[in-house]
Design a protein around this nucleic acid. Structure first.
Lengths: 191, 191
DNA sequence: TGTTTTAACTTGACAATGTAAAGATACCCG
DNA sequence: CGGGTATCTTTACATTGTCAAGTTAAAACA
């Protein structure tokens, strides 16, 4: 089926090839024509599956986010308390992107989190990682018998996300000398 | 001098034109040829001043950072305490980029903070905004008679920067519904 | 089964872009 | 004043995103 006129599963193949290219050569080397060539099809073939380059990139983004989400869920599973779960999420967050800095730049790079908000529509709800964090956070309030207004909750959530995200930013910087140890800070994550 | 063969001050003109284009149309619309056209010179003229596109962009970046730095210094000046200065810096940080979201994407977008570290070399030292923050932070320790190890200091600094930077990320998201109020959180900034 | 419709792909073309090479121009230093 | 050099232009080329028109094969239908 690989040598037939019809590729068979070009859409998935294009996404996979895109991820591979980003992984090996960074986002700046991603071009429609290269992705097409990597799949052994003509340069215009992707247009049968994606309106334009942006749509391909969005699809790749969604795919990478799924991988990210897997790690987060993995981190949360089987944790004894919400606090432990949240800390594990933070660790997983940093770890995931430290291992794949290209993914961080790719996901949060150009349009920062804007892209994710846009993606939320596909998920028909909030951005999944943030949703998971909120769930864990609410659980944390419950477990500790805390009561907070919605506004206070939003502030806490943004604060947590900000710290983790900001740290990841820094952790992803290549050539950073800092011997900063993520473990030193995690118990201070919860206000 | 504007109609002579030699432009006179093309380097600066290119940088200004670049900033203007980014401001009005975003970074994705920045092309060497457009910048050149905006200055009324041929499309290859920039190569007399910049090795390639990246070098032009780096120059623009340095220029925008200078503007950013001005605001930070402005915010710090005349504050009664280091604590007040740090909070003012945080406010200025968010305010500056909220007013010019394109600058945030431009500065921290593609390579995130990596670009800034690279720029540090030009400044022959640390990244100026971070340097200012460290100065204020050390002053804060002194004023409050606190003693911390260098490691603890680095953690605090990264934490502060992470919060502010992460919040700015979120603040810069277009179309974010959150009625999040920056003022609600600033007194909690200092550990 | 034979025909038609349609989705998936190819080919060819075009404009925009980054960049290199070679030439033109005018300013500066002797 | 004259040569040297930095600045700018012209021309050219490869890469890229995108479109339009044609081609193929698979699915739908009669």
């Amino acid at each position: 089926m690989a040598d037939s006129y019809h590729h068979g599963n070009l859409r998935e193949a294009l996404i996979d090839a895109g991820i591979k290219i980003i992984n090996e050569n960074g986002e700046e080397n991603l071009s429609l024509r290269k992705v097409a060539a990597a799949c052994g099809v003509s340069h215009a073939a992707p247009y049968a599956h994606f309106k334009d380059k942006e749509e391909l990139i969005d699809a790749i983004k969604a795919n990478v986010t799924d991988k990210f989400m897997e790690k987060l869920i993995e981190a949360v599973e089987g944790k004894p308390s919400a606090d432990a779960a949240i800390i594990a999420m933070g660790r997983a967050y940093v770890t995931f992107f430290s291992k794949n800095p290209d993914y961080f730049i790719f996901l949060f790079g150009k349009q920062n989190i804007t892209a994710h908000l846009k993606m939320s529509k596909e998920y028909k709800g909030d951005y999944p990682p943030f949703l998971l964090l909120r769930r864990m956070y609410l659980l944390h309030l419950e477990e500790n018998g805390l009561e907070k207004t919605v506004e206070e909750q939003e502030i806490d959530l943004i604060k947590i996300w900000s710290i983790v995200h900001g740290m990841t930013s820094i952790a992803c910087m290549k050539g950073v000398k800092s011997s900063f140890n993520w473990n030193d800070i995690d118990e201070r994550l919860l206000t």
